[in-house]
Design a protein around this nucleic acid. Structure first.
Lengths: 229, 229
DNA sequence: GCGGTGGTTAAGGGAGCGCTAAGGCGGACG
DNA sequence: CGTCCGCCTTAGCGCTCCCTTAACCACCGC
């Protein structure tokens, strides 16, 4: 499933955690101290960290702060301290969840999966992109404008899709030539202009009266929702 | 901060939650039953949902499932049931966190912020710089002043962006000619003056009554928040 | 009062862009 | 194998917009 790093000093608990998570299908590494854990976190870049607050060398909150300085890896705090200040402090230091010892492996597993699910969902690339009344189906290579299908040529679709993946962002013609036309060496900006013109026509707009496609003079073009209805 | 929906049937607890979260700066709506909550979640599309498990009409887990069928909104379960099956079941049904009643408002707030932080970090971060009521969208090359869009020419935008990247710092005209105009050899300072004048006009200020753009005679110009309102 | 710095407006010219048209390439089909 | 058709590229024209330069004025310091 995922690569999990456990930072826990207690020699009785650590093996239990490792074993429990391994049985649930995760790849598990572990460290018995804060500094060793940080080292491992940097070296092996795990998908998730389970961090004990009561470590012998450095306070767990400090480990978390140092970890956050270099990584966005999700962290679940496992702590014996069942009081508000500890919990609030840990969450505000950047932890994603807080579980109080003793806990069951079932609970830890559920929390691990909940955190990982949330992280994954953020990375997911949607199959369709919607920008206002414009729906771009990347997999099916179809485009609908106000629920009516618009027929695009391959280049036109690639161009629109590339812009739709960056809504609101200005993309230069050079970038488009590189990314859409796959011509890092050269190619004429005019080619992009022409395709943009055709695209605009099929989307029922013109450069003078833009709706979704706005050209930014001297820079490039931007796909965005119209300012007003 | 964020728009939060609370689904909780207990007439004593619900107002307390609403009040607590409002005091922390969130916009809060609430519903006393599962179906009413679902309706609200669909209609108002909140940024986060706090869901009670023990509802009168429908079981909280079912509400969560139905909610997940139509929305990816993060959900924090608030429940009196402090047992593993409830917690695991809720998390596996798609909840993001689980907090056991009774809990303090500090703890709820910390958990709310932790969940929102994780969701936010997953989204693409629009590289914008905010200086007072001035918002500069670098990627989109757009500028908003007091929530109203300001149309700038390419040079004007580059000039403003360069200054916005160094808020409070005085930049010399020579630096601007080098960095913005890309003319290390020469070019006239007057060009900068002219563009600054136009920029000031579009930002609704004048050199005599500056707001964001302050010239430091003999040195250069600085972009900063106005001293007072 | 005088030089210098900065603010503003006006005008000219040039660069970038929109759009049309034509040529060429490749694939489909007979 | 030849023809046709769709799509992409290149070329060209006209236009708009914006950048620069110039000129004038106001202000500050000496």
């Amino acid at each position: 499933m995922a690569e999990v790093l456990i930072i826990e000093d207690d020699d009785r608990i650590r093996p239990l955690l490792v074993k429990a998570l391994r049985e649930l299908g995760h790849t598990v590494t572990s460290a018995p101290s804060g500094m060793a854990g940080l080292q491992l976190a940097v070296d092996s870049s795990p998908d998730l960290v389970v961090l004990d607050l009561g470590l012998p060398d450095v306070d767990g909150t400090q480990v978390l702060s140092m970890l956050r300085a270099v990584s966005q890896v999700p962290v679940i705090i496992a702590s014996a301290r069942d009081d508000d200040p500890s919990l609030v402090g840990a969450l505000d230091a950047g932890a994603d969840d807080y579980v109080v010892k003793p806990f069951t492996s079932a609970q830890l597993d559920a929390r691990v999966r909940a955190v990982l699910r949330r992280v994954e969902s953020g990375r997911e690339r949607p199959a369709t992109i919607t920008v206002g009344g414009l729906v771009v189906d990347l997999a099916g290579r179809r485009v609908h404008l106000d629920d009516r299908e618009v027929e695009l040529t391959p280049r036109e679709f690639d161009l629109l899709a590339h812009l739709a993946e960056r809504p609101g962002e200005v993309v230069t013609k050079r970038d488009l030539l590189v990314e859409v036309w796959r011509q890092p060496w050269g190619g004429s900006d005019k080619t992009v202009d022409v395709h943009l013109s055709w695209l605009r026509r099929k989307l029922g707009e013109t450069a003078a009266a833009p709706r979704y496609l706005t050209t930014v003079r001297g820079v490039g073009v931007r796909l965005a929702v119209p300012e007003d209805g």
